[in-house]
């Protein structure tokens, strides 16, 4: 059966151990996690977790039901479709030899990144966008030499009805 990528976003109780319940569910049942993002919401008692996973259709159905079954999961939505906006952020440290600096800055401009740290031999840039955009950027930067990278994984938020 064909593997599908799905993005789930959920509101959970902001308590110790809740992330472990969610992550443990995935490891215990052999589900896959591509990325997982979590932080407190505007209400301190509630956190939002967004998970990107890949599986065939019946397993996706199970993942959603199993997450819903966790007592600390208040609400879960599959936000794979266009009803939600998705963003990921990455911090990329790229080698910046003098002969490459101009090219890197052009790429930064095109991708609307921000240089947030600069040294004799490197730039650290900040980029947000969907995962494809970040992957495309990385592809272009790779020839210059990527020293380090930190990615957040996908966050998602459902659009308000118009």
């Amino acid at each position: 059966m064909e593997m599908e990528k799905h993005i789930f976003t959920m509101l959970v109780d902001n308590q110790p151990g809740v992330l472990s319940r969610v992550a443990g569910l995935f490891s215990g049942k052999g589900f896959n996690i591509e990325s997982l993002v979590t932080a407190e919401t505007d209400t301190p008692l509630i956190s939002r977790i967004t998970i990107v996973t890949k599986a065939n259709k019946p397993v996706i159905e199970q993942i959603e039901k199993q997450l819903n079954k966790l007592v600390n999961v208040i609400k879960i939505r599959d936000v794979t479709g266009p009803e939600a906006v998705k963003r990921e952020m990455a911090l990329i440290c790229v080698k910046a030899r003098p002969e490459h600096r101009g090219e890197i800055l052009r790429i930064v401009d095109i991708f609307r990144c921000k240089i947030i740290d600069i040294g004799l031999e490197h730039y650290i840039m900040e980029v947000t966008g969907d995962s494809d955009k970040i992957n495309a950027l990385l592809k272009l930067l790779r020839p210059m030499g990527i020293k380090k990278i930190a990615r957040t994984g996908t966050m998602a938020l459902i659009r308000e009805p118009n």
Binding site: P16, G17, S20, R21, G24, L25, G28, V71
Partner: peptide, 14 residues
């Protein structure tokens, strides 16, 4: 024990 029994309880509490 809460960590140990997380996958084999309906729910657990410390």
């Amino acid at each position: 024990i809460v960590g140990i029994t997380r996958p084999c309880t309906k729910h657990n509490y410390l």
